[in-house]
């Protein structure tokens, strides 16, 4: 494990070339409530970075600002060096409540991003088909969301985000509505997909174990107003089997350290 909190502020002034997403001085006010206070962060390309923090720390707000879904009060987000003014094709969002259209089949849901872009039916279905297979839902193409379990629904959400071939995937607590066993399996699959897809992942969660297990880098936000409290890079051997990782001393120490840091925010 490496604590790079001090190094992070240095990185903020000199952008590292491999940063896919740069966040500079983001503040967010909701009426009188200060949600985020001057956030400076770099999200390295091809890595999975987690935003972790107590509930109400503004981590989802930050993710939605990066997505361009809500405007920041001040500050700037750059993706591949281009300032964000709204949603863009280089980013794709995975929603906490899946945001699947209940009236559409798995196929149409996965292809929806392409449908909106005006991609022809055959082409988008071929692409959707590939990603449905990749997330392990082959054979479920013509099912409707209500016929799937929570875990399977989120796989559809993930496939939809992959299908538009964005560079950056933004995942907003994707597993919080998935039951514990499915979540573990899903986490393992996600790691495989991070490896396979070579994309930049930004992942919001409130589960410490999940963050440590999945992430290359963990950004811990403090309680409202949200600020960067700590940045940790868990140095865990990902070539080991999932079960070995979960028993790894480094993994357990990192979980413990983060918990000690977060404990004071819990009421």
């Amino acid at each position: 494990m490496r604590n790079i909190t001090a190094a992070a502020s240095a990185a903020a002034t000199t952008p590292s070339p491999e940063a896919a997403v740069e966040v500079r001085g983001i503040c967010k006010m909701y009426a009188d409530m200060e949600a985020l206070r001057s956030i400076d962060l770099d999200f390295p390309a091809g890595k999975l970075t987690t935003l972790l923090g107590p509930s109400g720390c503004g981590k989802t707000t930050l993710l939605k600002i990066i997505a361009g879904l809500i405007p920041a009060t001040s500050g700037e987000v750059r993706v591949n060096g281009v300032p964000v003014t709204g949603p863009g094709p280089e980013r794709a969002f995975v929603f906490q409540d899946f945001a699947l259209m209940p009236w559409a089949t798995v196929m149409r849901n996965v292809a929806f991003g392409l449908e909106l872009k005006g991609v022809g039916k055959d082409e988008r279905q071929a692409i959707a088909h590939k990603y449905i297979a990749e997330v392990g839902l082959s054979g479920f193409e013509n099912k409707y969301p209500h016929e799937l379990s929570g875990g399977m629904r989120q796989r559809v959400g993930l496939a939809r985000a992959f299908a538009v071939n964005a560079d950056v995937l933004l995942l907003d607590e994707p597993f919080s509505a998935v039951d514990e066993q499915n979540r573990r399996k899903f986490q393992e699959d996600l790691l495989r997909l991070v490896e396979l897809e070579k994309k930049t992942f930004i992942f919001v969660t409130h589960s410490i174990e999940e963050a440590v297990y999945c992430s290359d880098r963990i950004v811990i936000l403090s309680r409202r107003p949200g600020r960067v409290a700590q940045i940790i890079e868990p140095e865990i051997d990902r070539t080991a089997s999932p079960d070995a990782i979960r028993r790894d001393q480094g993994y357990l120490d990192t979980v413990e350290e983060i918990w000690q840091g977060l404990k004071r925010y819990v009421d």
Partner: peptide
Amino acid sequence: VNPSLVDMCRSFQGT
């Protein structure tokens, strides 16, 4: 209407 679906459409740059 489910606001999350509307967000989803926006995030995929729906008009």
